[in-house]
Design a protein around this nucleic acid. Structure first.
Lengths: 344, 344
DNA sequence: CCCTGTGTGACTTATTATGTCCCGCTTGTG
DNA sequence: CACAAGCGGGACATAATAAGTCACACAGGG
C-alpha cells in the first residue's frame, strides 16, 4: 500500500491535496455534526463558496446528507473516513511523526492526530476519537477503566461510543479530588464516559484538601474502601498530561505547595503528580486512588495530550512512564521532533 | 488495496482518469522514446495542448526529461511505472479479465495487457514487455529458451532486456523454416532476442520445404544435429498463436496443404501446427525442431497472442495446451470472455 | 543543404472556479 | 406564540484557469 501512495504522491500531488481537503471536511462534519456551511467554513478556514462546492460534491457522492438542521455524515461517509484513516495519516505525514516519536520517547505505541489543539479546539475531539478507538481494542468484558480529569479527557469521554461486543465495563475515577472545576473533574468525566460507553461507573466523593485525620477515617469508610479496591484493580488507565504551572494555577493550589512546584522546576503534571524536566516527581497532591507506583502494574496505560505548548510536559512525563500508549496531535509531535532533531 | 482505491474513487472520481492518463503518457514515452510532443499527441489521441501541460507536469516531477531530440523517461519514471504496473492493471479491470480467462481456459497463468493489438500496434510491444518480464522470472543460469516466429514474437524480442543476475542463457529457434518472411522468422527473432538479453544463440538453417530424402540427410548433419539436441532440451518455449487461414496465406503454403487446412476447419496455428475449433491437429508443416508432443515435457511454455481477431484461435489452441502461460491483450480477452458469458 | 521533427513562447477564447448577495425556510428559544 | 438565528439554495458577476492555435528558433538526418 505504501508504494502506491508514494507513487500517487508523485503522479498526482495536486489531486491528493484535493482528496485531503475533502477528507478533512468530512472529518470535521463528523466531529461537529449537525453543522451548517457557514459555521464550518469559519472553523475550517475555507471560504464559504468553495466549501459549498465541496459539500455539494460530497452530498452527490452520498457521503453526507444535508438538511435544514445542518450537515451530517452518512454511514457511507463514516465508512469512507474509516477506510481512509490510515492512508490519510500516511499522506499527511503523521505516520512519519509517529515513527520518529517512537524513537525519541520510551513508549509502546503512539498515535498522532492531525492539527494542533492549541490552535483548534476540535483537535481534542479527534484525539478523543483516536483514544476511544484504542480503548475499545484493549477493553474486554469486566474491564475496569480508571480515568483522570482535564479538558482533554472530557473530549475523550465525549467521543466514546458504545460497543455491543463488550460486556460489563466499569469506569472509575483514578484519583480523588485534585481541585479541578466540576466539568473537568475525574468524577464527572468518569460518569460521562460510562454513559457514552453504556458501561457502569462508581464515583469517589472526596473533598479536595483533607486533614490527615479526616483522610484516615475516610479511607476506612466501607463505601469508599470498596471503590478504592476497584480502582486498585483497574487494568486500564487513561490520563492526561498537563503543563505543571498551568495546572497548578488552575487548581486552587495553596501557596506553599506552589512554591515547591516552582522551586522544583516542574514542567509536567499528570493525575496529581508534578514532574521536572528529567521526569522526577517534584510534588504530589495528597489524595486517595491510584498512586504513581501502581501504574507499573496496570496492563494498559493511555496518555492523551496535545498542543505544541504541551510538548515539554509530554516529554518530561514520558521519561518515567514506560509501556504507555501516547495519543497526541501534530502540533505537539512536531514540537517534540523539532527539539530532538535540532538541525532540519 | 482494493478498498483504498474504491474509497479514493468516491472522494475524487476523476482521480483514476487523471492517473491513468498520466500513466499512459509516461508509458508511451517509455515505449517510443525519444519522442516529440506532437507525434505523441497524435498517437495517444490527446490534444497537443493538454499533453503539453501533462508533460510539463511530469517533467517537474522528474519523471521524464525533455531535450531537443524528444522526451525520455527518467529512472524515477521507470521505477514509478514499475511500481504502478500492478495497480493500473487492476484499475483498468485487467485483473478481472485475467481471473475470468483462468476459469474459461485450462491455463496455468494469464496476463492481460491493456489495449487491442488489432487496433493499436503498440499493444504488441506491451505484450512483449510483459512476456519479457515473465520470462525473466522463469529463466535461470544455463536455461535454453526456444522461440518461434511471428510479429508478436518479434515484439517480445524487441522488449527483451539484459539482466546481469542471470548467467548463460541460450536462445534457439523452436522449429525450422515455416515459410515466413525474414523479419518474422524464428531464426531472426532468436538472434535478436539473444542480443537484447545479452545471451547466446544458435540458429537452425533449414530450407522451407524439403524433400524427404534431403530432410533425412540434413538431420544427420553434425551441426544441425547439435542444435536439434539443444532444442530438444529446451526448458522454456515462447511461441505465438495465429489465425489459421491468415497464417497459411502469409506463408507460401502449397495448394494441396491449403485445401487440407480449409477442409479441416482450422482456426488456430502455432509453430507450424494447425488446429480446428476443438483443438485437434488438422495439419502440420513438415519441419525439424520441437514437435507438439515435446511441449508436454517442457517446464515453461509461454504463449503470446493478442487482438480480438485472434480470440478464437487462442481458445482453440489453448484447449489442448495445458499448463501454459498465456500473454494476451484486452481485446482478445474481452472477446473470449464475451463468448463464454453470452448474457451481458 | 534542406527538411522534418523538436521545444518554447505568446495569444485568444472557452470554461470553470470563486466571491458575493439575497431569499425563503426550519428550528430552537425567549 | 413569535421572533431571530442559522440553515440550504439560487443567482450572477468576475476572476482564474485550462485549452486551442499559431509562430518561431533550433537540432539532426537524408
Amino acid at each position: 500500500m505504501r508504494p502506491l501512495i508514494d507513487a500517487q504522491k508523485k503522479l498526482l500531488p495536486d489531486l491528493l491535496d484535493v482528496m485531503q481537503k475533502r477528507y478533512r471536511i468530512l472529518q470535521y462534519i463528523r466531529l461537529m455534526q449537525p453543522i451548517g456551511r457557514r459555521t464550518l467554513s469559519g472553523n475550517i478556514g475555507i471560504s464559504e463558496r468553495i466549501l459549498r462546492a465541496e459539500v455539494q460534491f460530497l452530498k452527490e457522492q452520498n457521503l453526507l446528507s444535508i438538511s435544514s438542521t445542518g450537515m451530517v455524515v452518512t454511514p457511507d461517509g463514516e465508512q469512507l473516513l474509516q477506510t481512509l484513516e490510515d492512508v490519510m495519516r500516511e499522506i499527511l505525514g503523521l505516520k512519519d511523526l509517529e515513527t520518529k516519536l517512537k524513537r525519541i520517547l520510551p513508549i509502546e505505541e503512539v498515535i498522532v492526530v492531525a492539527g494542533d489543539s492549541d490552535l483548534s479546539p476540535w483537535v481534542k475531539k479527534e484525539m478523543g476519537r483516536a483514544c476511544a478507538a484504542r480503548l475499545k481494542e484493549r477493553m474486554s468484558s469486566h474491564s475496569i477503566v480508571a480515568v483522570t480529569g482535564g479538558t482533554t479527557l472530557a473530549a475523550v469521554a465525549e467521543m466514546m461510543t458504545a460497543d455491543p461486543k463488550q460486556g460489563d465495563v466499569l469506569f472509575v475515577p483514578a484519583r480523588g479530588g485534585l481541585g479541578e472545576h466540576v466539568e473537568n473533574q475525574a468524577n464527572t468525566i468518569c460518569a460521562k464516559m460510562a454513559e457514552k460507553a453504556a458501561g457502569n461507573y462508581r464515583l469517589l466523593h472526596v473533598p479536595d484538601y483533607l486533614s490527615n485525620e479526616a483522610y484516615q477515617s475516610l479511607i476506612e469508610e466501607p463505601a469508599v474502601k470498596e471503590v478504592l479496591q476497584l480502582i486498585q484493580s483497574a487494568n486500564i488507565v487513561i490520563h492526561g498530561i498537563g503543563d505543571a504551572i498551568t495546572m497548578a494555577k488552575r487548581r486552587k493550589t495553596p501557596e506553599e505547595e506552589m512554591a515547591k512546584i516552582i522551586a522544583g522546576n516542574a514542567v509536567a503534571e499528570a493525575f496529581g503528580y508534578y514532574f521536572n524536566q528529567a521526569g522526577d516527581v517534584v510534588h504530589k497532591v495528597q489524595t486517595i486512588g491510584i498512586q504513581l507506583d501502581d501504574l507499573r502494574h496496570v496492563r494498559h496505560v493511555i496518555a492523551v495530550a496535545g498542543g505544541a505548548s504541551k510538548a515539554k510536559a509530554i516529554e518530561a512525563y514520558m521519561k518515567q512512564a514506560p509501556r504507555s500508549v501516547l495519543i497526541t496531535d501534530e502540533g505537539a509531535a512536531k514540537a517534540l521532533v523539532r527539539e530532538s532533531y535540532p538541525s532540519p
